[in-house]
Write a protein that binds this DNA or RNA. Structure first.
Lengths: 148, 148
DNA sequence: GGTGAAATGAGTACCCC
DNA sequence: GGGGTACTCATTTCACC
């Protein structure tokens, strides 16, 4: 992971579908050299996935909500983590420090679909407390974690 | 945005670097037809960006933190939104309902770099209250918002 | 939306430093 | 060991049906 590898990753963060020939030009390397470095970044697991960022509003996902959950101390909700993975509208889920156990981010269509999801979540065994809030405006939603 | 367009998006969510020839086979369409649909999804803004998901640990981003911020009611912190965009380690920022004004997600190296960022954030004009927590385990971190 | 030809891009083998 | 060059094969794009 030297400076050239980082340059490759930064270029692909901006446009993962760029061609090897454009990429190699951007990092001032020959095509085979760039291709070989990219292959190594993929096989070593530095690159987990190539994906596409969609405009939520254009696919009818107009409501983002955040939620904290606390479970009984006897069952710290390991089951919840498994359940959360089955809900396509739960896009982020973290086990956290503090008063609650889990934090989730929900991206859904509208209040009706949110209500439906919340009622499913509140059926989870051992759930003792939740806290909800709604996103009014999306300032930053960045998947690029590599900066300099 | 018919069923075929959604099939294109779902395929690209899984692998944004897949070739047009593979994509066209996956959706049972000819190559030029698939290419033309993809071009329209790009120009219409449904597809905002193609990007790469990196393994945070492999690029020394071992610490994720969440933070809530409240600003003085006179200045509701519009400046903060602008400032947040300049901090590469602030990967998500939402203007929210409830007791606080903003919610941010920070992905950083370690406690030292987090401390450094927090001290910069706490310099923001009008900031009256913050609440922090640290992520212990990343259960779901999904950028794919299109489900069915 | 499908078919075929021209152009562009990717991968392999080999050479150099 | 890592990078450049030339050649071959795959892929994409354009004109046309």
């Amino acid at each position: 992971m030297d400076k050239t590898d980082k340059a490759i990753l930064k270029n692909l963060q901006k446009n993962a579908r760029m061609t090897i020939s454009d990429l190699s030009a951007a990092i001032s390397l020959s095509m085979p050299a760039a291709s070989e470095r990219l292959r190594k970044l993929e096989t070593s697991g530095v690159i987990k996935q190539y994906t596409v960022i969609l405009d939520p509003e254009k696919i009818n996902k107009n409501l983002t909500a955040l939620m904290f959950l606390r479970f009984e101390s006897t069952c710290k909700g390991e089951d919840f983590a498994e359940y959360a993975k089955t809900e396509a509208e739960i896009n982020e889920c973290y086990y956290i420090t503090g008063d609650f156990d889990y934090f989730i981010k929900i991206v859904t269509e509208d209040a009706r679909t949110l209500k439906s999801l919340l009622s499913r979540i509140k059926n989870c065994a051992g759930l003792v407390k939740t806290s909800n809030l709604v996103v009014l405006s999306n300032i930053i939603d960045n998947v690029s974690i590599l900066s300099d």
